[in-house]
Computed example of a mutant assay.
Amino acid sequence: MKILRSAAIAVALTGTAAISAAQPMRFPEKPVTFIVPFAAGSATDQLARALGVAFTEKTGQPVVVDNRGGAGGLIAAQAVARAAADGYTVLITTNTTQVANPYLYRKLPYDPVADFAPLTALGRGGQVLVVPAASPYKSVADVVAKARSQPGKLSFGAGNSSSRIAGEMLKQLSQTDILYVPYKSNPQALTDLLGGQIDLMVIDTVTGIPQIESGKLRALGASTQRRLSVLPKVPTLEEAGVKGYDIGYWFAAYAPSKTSPAVSARLRQLLVEAVHSPHAKTFFNSTGTEPWTTSAEELAQFQSAEATKWSKVIKAANIEPE
């Protein structure tokens, strides 16, 4: 009798599980927050907002984009690491918080691996060396010549690790001394560049392209091995004489580490669909950024490989952790 009763319970449980499995996950059921480590107007912010529109259209739930700039992304990353692991808080970020910061700061208020559940990569792209349109420097060779003749005279600004490391790499590979000026975000650095307070930047295409197309900035060299599709006439920095120069940026999404596999999978599905939406397509096409999605496992592996690469670049640039 006990055996039959146990069997009946097992059948009932199996049936319940089957019914549950057949039912679609009812997530999200309230607004979702995308936390961005950089200021409004930054590349990451623009992508987050484009994804948010597509996310809302698919789910019917609003997406709140919460910009928490400053401290190299530490504030935003820590906020997500400490958030409830219910899927309603997502970090839309870059290589800055996940691979560069461990080598730029002595103490992090979060662990870029242990504190997060990788969801998917979102996109990747290159940067471009720019100067104000009124600048006397017409080429990369002009910048290098000036920096060599007057060490420390020129300055470059950066509001994220991608721009900073790109600038430091320029110094290292061209054997020049250019003063680094830190900013909370690239849009802030761009404002000072346009105002003549700093001389140059290596900036992401998302932030730089509108200013280049409007004639306010002059593009001198692309950071990647191949010329950028949105700036086909601009040589790469390597073509311009800075041998070995190659660096880019990428976007990805993460949830708090203890988020359930089911919720993480649902978030990934929605984000992948958002990346391939018309809203995101407009962002990618206008900025020269490549849409790029991965599985959670692929993102984790990629992040690990990038951490190794960036650590070498940072150490070679002699950047001391703050």
Rank of each mutant, 00 (worst) to 15 (best):
152 G>I: 12
76 A>P: 02
101 N>V: 12
186 N>C: 13
232 P>M: 02
115 D>N: 08
277 S>E: 12
57 E>L: 13
25 M>K: 08
304 S>E: 14
204 D>Y: 14
16 T>I: 08
305 A>N: 12
16 T>D: 04
3 I>S: 04
18 A>C: 07
168 E>P: 06
134 A>T: 14
14 T>F: 10
290 E>T: 15
177 D>V: 12
14 T>N: 06
199 D>R: 05
268 R>M: 03
151 P>W: 03
196 G>R: 02
306 E>T: 14
139 S>D: 10
232 P>K: 06
192 D>N: 04
75 I>V: 08
15 G>V: 09
96 T>I: 12
270 L>T: 06
199 D>A: 07
58 K>P: 04
253 A>Y: 00
134 A>D: 07
222 A>F: 12
7 A>D: 05
253 A>D: 10
144 V>P: 00
147 A>W: 09
209 I>K: 10
7 A>E: 05
155 S>D: 11
246 D>H: 06
174 S>Q: 13
91 L>M: 06
235 P>E: 03
199 D>I: 07
40 A>M: 12
172 Q>H: 11
132 P>L: 11
184 K>G: 09
65 V>M: 08
46 Q>K: 15
322 E>H: 04
106 R>P: 00
290 E>V: 15
73 G>L: 10
132 P>A: 11
16 T>H: 03
251 F>N: 13
143 V>L: 13
123 G>P: 00
284 F>T: 02
217 L>E: 01
193 L>W: 01
175 Q>Y: 06
53 V>H: 09
68 R>N: 03
299 L>N: 03
190 L>D: 01
85 A>Y: 02
158 A>W: 11
244 G>A: 07
77 A>Y: 06
166 A>R: 04
134 A>F: 10
114 A>L: 08
223 S>A: 11
296 A>I: 01
93 T>S: 12
319 I>D: 05
152 G>N: 09
207 T>A: 14
267 L>F: 10
187 P>S: 15
29 E>I: 13
166 A>D: 09
192 D>T: 01
177 D>P: 01
292 W>K: 05
129 L>Y: 05
132 P>N: 10
247 I>H: 14
150 Q>A: 11
224 T>R: 04
83 A>G: 08
84 A>H: 00
155 S>G: 09
39 A>D: 08
85 A>Q: 01
123 G>L: 07
192 D>H: 13
296 A>H: 12
124 R>Y: 13
220 L>T: 02
50 A>H: 08
302 F>D: 11
288 G>M: 15
276 H>K: 06
285 N>F: 10
255 A>T: 01
196 G>H: 09
130 V>M: 00
193 L>S: 01
108 L>V: 07
33 T>G: 04
202 V>R: 01
154 L>S: 15
